[in-house]
Structure formats: C-alpha cells, structure tokens
Amino acid sequence: MERTAIRRRLTWQTGTVTEVREETSTARTIALDVPDWPGHLAGQHLDVRLTAPDGYRASRSYSIASAWTGAGIELTVEQVPDGEVSPYLVDVLKVGDPLEIRGPVGGWFVWKPEQPGPVQLIGGGSGVVPLMAMLRAHSAAASTAPARLLYSVRRPASVIYVSDLKDVAMSEEVAITFAYTREAPPGESREPKRIDAELLKSVAFQPGDEPTTYVCGPTPFVETVADLLVAAGHDPARVRTERFGPTGGPR
C-alpha cells in the first residue's frame, strides 16, 4: 500500500471567501484565499470551524474540491437536512467573510499524478467532490493515466460541476458516464436505476486493467458499489472508499 506520512501539527487558519458559486439548489462551491495553506493532495479534506458570538463552536470535515495549484482552495458543500454547519456554508456565508479551517487531512483516499495505472472514480451524489479534485489534479498535471468517472446522480438538475465536467471530459484520457437513478435526460438510453454489475462491466475499468478505484458517496451507495467491484474480481486492496451519512437502515 502506498502511504503518505504527514506527522505535523495542524493549526487553525483564517481564510477569506473570494467567491461562491451555486452548483445545484442544495450545493455550492466556496472559494477561499488562505495565506498559509501548505498545499494538499487530491482527495484530502479539511475541517471547518464556526464560532458564534458567545464563543460556541461547531466543526465539520469537508472534502477539498480543487487541485492544489499554488493559489486558493475550493470546497463544495451539500446542505444536510437538519445540519448545523452546512446550512451556514450554503445559505449564510458570503464573499469577504472569514472562515476558519485546518488541514489538509487524510493520506489514503488520495490520487497522485505519479501513481501508476488507470484511475477509476465512482461517486454518488456529493461524493463526486473529492473525485472532482482528482480529475482537476489529473488535468493540472497533464497526466496520461486513463481516468474514468462514473457519477451516480438522481436527475440532471442534481449534477454538481456541470460545466467543469464538460471541460475535463475534453481530454482524451478522461471518460465520464452518468448513472441517473430517478430521472434521466432525454436521449439517455439507460432507464433510471442504480449502478449495477452490468453498468460496471460496460463502462468501468476491469480487474485486468489494474486500476486504482475510488468510491465516495453515502454509506449504502459505497457498500453496494464496493461489493459489486469485489464480486467482479477487483482486488479489495485497490478499492479505496470514503463513506458519509447514515447507514440507511437499522443495523
């Protein structure tokens, strides 16, 4: 296993919001200027800390959406129903506001341009965020590694990064497939349904291609996709996962 050892102390820093972009009705991208950001790997996350006037604080972790190119970072935040931090980030935070962050964190769910072999990205909903960072890093490095994104999304209006995905798909090395689960756009041949073994067989890299596969999304989505990949013969050690949210049922 390739590992990244990062054993330095992470301190809180104050960034400044330089831009906000609506991605969908419930998600937005926040661009930050962070003077002392040490850089990050595609796929890493950071912690955001909010402070109320009485000193009360709340923190959460968010995937970094941008590749590090030496200036600024971007987060994409999906509003969690009944959340405490995400509604502030999506609805309240505005350009010019300060935002406390610390990071980057995580040395496993990362893609590095020097990594050998094809890269398969499989995202569900806002699980596409760290995968977008990987596609951006792939583009910034002009990587020749074949990369495929399989993006499971409820309906066309739920797609985050519509125009950015069109841009990265211009590369000959990058292929993007959408799997619509509730409502497909006109002209889509596959009926709306979840990712299944047949779709993985037709659009994803096969075990013989020896890809590194990154799966990110809600827990039931990741469980299903990772199980399908292992059942199809993929080496579990080459399947990296990041899960979020509830388990989706009593366990």
């Binding site: 109320a52 009360y56 935070l93 506001d97 300060p98």
Partner: peptide, 8 residues
Amino acid sequence: SVSPGFTG
C-alpha cells in the same frame, strides 16, 4: 474570529 451570522 466570530463567523458572521452563525449562532449555532
């Protein structure tokens, strides 16, 4: 710093 508009 206080986060403008955040009450928690």
